[in-house]
């Protein structure tokens, strides 16, 4: 092995890849969230479809998309490698284990949280990305693919909303630990700045996960199957009854 592979197969090297990919994925989350805010515009999805058309066809975005694939790929691969290493470091466990006395639940369960997010990701990609890119969708008034319609329909299925919200909760917890952890792994821990990084990370985790989770909830509770805003309580109840049928 040369120095390069040695570096990135060492325990710290793998962690560095985890943190670099993790923080890169955080930037993706920001872009994705801001873009998706178009869903809240009451224009029958015109803005959202324009945005998704741009994302699906712009060559720069399409190139970065490959970076994203690599980012996810390495993040997941290194997670597996590290988990195997860490499990192998203690083959005989304790009879009694009181880790809750000395650490946060989220930081000990990044693997579980990540796995939930991965399951969600597969469903999510199939439902939206795959269909937008490779399926045939109706066209909207601007002749863009009407992805908005797919979104609205999906978010009126209760199980899909539940999965979506649960995944966003997992993402929030994942980020709660992961954001500051990424900085720590890169050695960016300074007693002057660490409190700021920590608090920013907590805020980031809450805003991003709540932001994403608000979309399915909004559509489920407050719009009809066409995405039109419901204005009365009986209408909301009627809508919910449909969703759970």
């Amino acid at each position: 092995m040369n120095w390069f592979t040695k570096t990135f197969t060492s325990s710290i090297g793998r962690k560095i890849i985890m943190s670099l990919t993790g923080l890169f994925l955080c930037t993706f989350l920001v872009v994705h969230l801001i873009g998706n805010l178009q869903l809240f515009k009451h224009d029958d999805g015109v803005a959202f479809n324009t945005y998704s058309h741009f994302m699906g066809t712009n060559p720069v975005i399409r190139t970065i998309e490959w970076g994203l694939v690599l980012g996810f790929g390495f993040h997941i691969y290194e997670a597996l490698m590290l988990t195997m290493r860490n499990k192998g470091a203690r083959s005989h466990g304790y009879a009694q284990w009181q880790a809750k006395q000395n650490s946060e639940w989220t930081s000990r369960n990044m693997g579980i949280l990540g796995s939930i997010i991965l399951v969600f990701l597969i469903v999510h990609l199939y439902n939206f990305f795959w269909r937008a890119r490779f399926g045939t969708l109706d066209a909207d008034i601007n002749h863009n693919d009407d992805l908005y319609k797919v979104v609205v329909t999906s978010f009126h299925q209760w199980w899909y909303v539940v999965l979506y919200v649960a995944a966003q909760a997992s993402l929030g917890y994942h980020l709660w630990h992961g954001f500051r952890s990424g900085f720590q792994t890169l050695g960016l821990n300074h007693r002057k700045y660490m409190p700021l990084i920590k608090n920013f990370g907590y805020a980031f985790a809450v805003i991003v996960s709540a932001g994403f989770a608000s979309m399915p909830l909004y559509f489920l509770f407050f719009t009809n199957e066409n995405g039109a805003l419901l204005t009365s309580a009986p209408a909301v109840l009627h809508q919910l009854a449909l969703a759970f049928n």
Binding site: A89, S107, H177
Partner: peptide, 22 residues
């Protein structure tokens, strides 16, 4: 030192913080 640490079979750090707490 890091190379030796890995050879010895210790796990990697997940920034959990149990170590410092204990």
């Amino acid at each position: 030192m890091v190379a030796q640490m890995d050879i010895e079979g210790f796990g990697a750090c997940s920034n959990i913080g149990s170590c410092a707490a204990e």
